[in-house]
Computed example of a mutant assay.
Amino acid sequence: MQVQVTMAGWTLCVVLVLAALPGAVAETRYEKFLRQHVDNPRTSTLSAHRYCETMLARRQVTAPGRPCKPSNTFVHAPPEELTAACTQTPDAMGFQSTPTAVSLTACRARGGSTRPPCAYRARQVQHHVRVSCLNGLPVHLAGTYAPPQ
């Protein structure tokens, strides 16, 4: 009985110490959104056609042993511009859009790329970004659309 109490106390102590360490606490949904979708200013790479592969690996969106993500979008605007979407009126689907078009890179998996190393096509455009918000912060990128002509 004495050993169980001591072991439980030790486990609780370890958990509390780990929780206090920077980076030991799991990221919030907003932090995950930023990691997976915001690259401002745009990271320059040695070869522009490798941008998607480099960023998706660096940001741990694709990882060894996990399937390639079919598509991902990196927004090259300050997080505040995406947070501004959360103040807009939601559309019929409940998504909110950035008030202005922003620079972004749309990454799409190239044919047959289902397991790492993943191959992607990159397309740079100026689009509005549709997001889902939670507590006034974007937590999911639902899509993008071209500004009206």
Rank of each mutant, 00 (worst) to 15 (best):
M1S: 12
V3H: 08
Q4L: 13
V5F: 07
M7T: 08
A8F: 05
A8W: 08
G9K: 01
W10P: 03
T11L: 14
T11Y: 13
L12T: 04
L12R: 04
L12D: 10
C13I: 04
L16Y: 08
A19D: 04
P22K: 14
P22R: 13
G23L: 15
G23K: 06
A26W: 10
A26G: 10
R29W: 02
E31W: 05
E31K: 00
K32C: 02
N40I: 03
P41L: 10
P41S: 05
R42Y: 07
R42T: 05
T43F: 01
T43Q: 14
S44C: 15
S47M: 11
S47N: 14
H49Y: 10
H49W: 14
C52Y: 01
C52D: 03
E53V: 07
M55E: 14
A57K: 00
R59H: 07
R59T: 12
Q60I: 03
T62F: 01
T62N: 04
A63F: 06
G65D: 10
R66S: 07
C68D: 04
K69N: 10
P70N: 12
S71C: 07
S71D: 03
N72Q: 12
F74T: 12
H76D: 13
A77R: 04
P78Y: 00
L82F: 01
L82C: 01
A85V: 02
C86N: 02
Q88E: 05
T89H: 11
P90V: 04
M93I: 02
Q96E: 02
T98V: 03
T98Q: 00
P99T: 02
V102L: 12
L104F: 11
L104C: 11
T105G: 07
T105P: 03
A106T: 07
A106V: 09
C107E: 03
C107D: 03
R108T: 15
R108E: 15
S113P: 03
S113H: 05
S113K: 01
R115D: 12
R115S: 15
R115H: 00
P117G: 13
P117D: 06
C118H: 01
Y120F: 05
Y120S: 09
A122W: 09
Q126C: 11
R130C: 02
R130H: 03
V131D: 10
S132C: 10
S132R: 14
L134I: 00
L137V: 06
L137F: 02
H140W: 09
L141N: 05
T144C: 01
T144L: 09
P147Q: 02
Q149W: 14
Q149T: 13
Q149S: 13
Q149M: 10
